[in-house]
Amino acid sequence: MAHVWRMIAQRLGLGLLTLFVVSIIIFGATELLPGDFAQAVLGQAATPEAVAAIRRELDLDQPVVVRYTNWLFGVLQGDFGTSLAQRGRPVSDMILSRLGNTFFLAIYAAAMAVPLALTLGVLVALWRNSLFDRVANSTALSAISFPEFFVAYILIFVLAQGGYFPSMARMPASADLGEKLYRAFLPALTLTLVVTAHMMRMTRAAIINLLSSPYIEMARLKGMRPSRVIVHHALPNAIAPIANVVALNLAYLITGVVVVEVVFVYPGLGQLMVDSVSRRDIPVVQAIALIFAAAYVLLNLAADVISTLSNPRLMHRK
């Protein structure tokens, strides 16, 4: 077990390094984009005087290295700075409610998608090449092949214009959990349709791959029922690849859902990120990029820990 803890510690250290590199890349990339905050926020109304005044006020006239170092020292002390756009409003304050919404939607979608994908994956492996397999496969693949916004529009057309669910998934502060689940149902369903195929196909492939191993043949020859062969013997050994694909999809649910947020007018982090990039609000962009990168690092780490724990050869190394 000790080596698992060591791995976690090591990976977290490397993760911090990754975050540091990400922050430099993002800062540099936003620096390369044409224009800065002062020009972006004034748009067509920008006069040289107004641009200069805003730059002076927000220290945007400092060299890039100075601005990055200032930002980094702030972060090391736990201060993510204040948004350029919302003068004086701490970045953490701007991000928190959005972060909550993003996690809510990701967890909601994952709670539907992961059990559905795993169950379907096991079932199609069990009845592979049957009619059920083909229908489940082609349905899931069509759902993933359509662009997200198209799936979203279809659902709006059928379920929102039909009067069953709201087309706008706004989250009033006063809403209780039930109402939140109701309001966010359509975006969650869209995301479920989008991520299920990937996880289901991976589960199916991993299990089928194992079904040709000698120990499965042995189990079959003993006369074991196919469902027991798969659930008790094949599945435990397929956990590693499944955990990896689930982790990737969860990370996607947190970081990559801006299109769904836009279509359903859902106030999540993705929209905030896009807005902030287009307005060059660098402190906000940096903070969100770090959150997204951290989500990838942590979820991948979790997947690796699960694969290690599920594999006796890794757990009991000589």
Partner: peptide, 19 residues
Amino acid sequence: LYAILDSAARQNALITGEV
């Protein structure tokens, strides 16, 4: 007042009575 940047979402919001 709601910001609904996507024009299809905006029209849907009107049709479904959200705005």
